[in-house]
Structure formats: C-alpha cells, structure tokens
C-alpha cells in the first residue's frame, strides 16, 4: 500500500537515550507533520535505524535539510518506493 501524498525517510542514527527527542522535537517545533515512526537498534546497538512516514508537501525538502543537520543523523535516505502499509498494521506484526 502506498499513499501518494506520503513518503518514507530512512535514518541511521547514533543510538543513545536522547536521539528520539532530537528527531521528534525537530518535527514538533518546526510544525512538520510526522505520520508514523518505526525504530530499532542495528547490529551491536551503537546505531539505530528509524523509518519516518511524512507528508509530501511544500515542507518536505526543508524537513530533509533540517534532519541532515542533526549531529546524530549519520545517514538519510529518501525511500519514495517503500510500501507504507507496515505503519498501519503494526498490531498484526506483533501477533504470534
């Protein structure tokens, strides 16, 4: 499933307790919409991967630039081809 007014941003970030605040704080203080967020540790846990579901609107390029500025963001990839349905069926993924 893909909603064409949305897209996915993949971030590789340093994994420490403040990182989530840095990312979500950026969205709230600059008034950007954040529709969904998935996050998990990578490898031995010094980095994490985050998937952000965001609206494709006039703020999108600014969101990318501001995210790239964050010191804890190691890598940013725009995943326009990704299926968004995972964000809407998290419940079922947790089911046995």
């Amino acid at each position: 499933m893909k909603q064409h007014n949305h897209t996915v941003i993949e971030l590789i970030v340093n994994n420490h307790p403040g990182v989530m605040s840095h990312i979500t704080g950026l969205f709230s203080r600059r008034g950007y919409n954040l529709e969904g967020i998935l996050c998990g540790a990578l490898g031995e846990g010094s980095t994490s991967v985050m998937y952000l579901l965001v609206s494709l609107n006039e703020q999108y390029m600014q969101i990318i630039s501001q995210l790239e500025k964050l010191h804890d963001v190691i890598e940013l990839k725009e995943r326009s081809e990704y299926d968004h349905s995972v964000f809407y069926k998290i419940d079922s993924l947790f089911a046995e």
Partner: peptide
C-alpha cells in the same frame, strides 16, 4: 538540561 536545550543548541551532550 538535555531536554531543555535540544531546541536551542546546535547540538548537546549528556
């Protein structure tokens, strides 16, 4: 301090 200074610093550390 960490939480308070996120929006007003270029970066912060604990």
């Amino acid at each position: 301090t960490y939480g308070l200074t996120i929006p007003i610093t270029k970066h912060n550390f604990l």
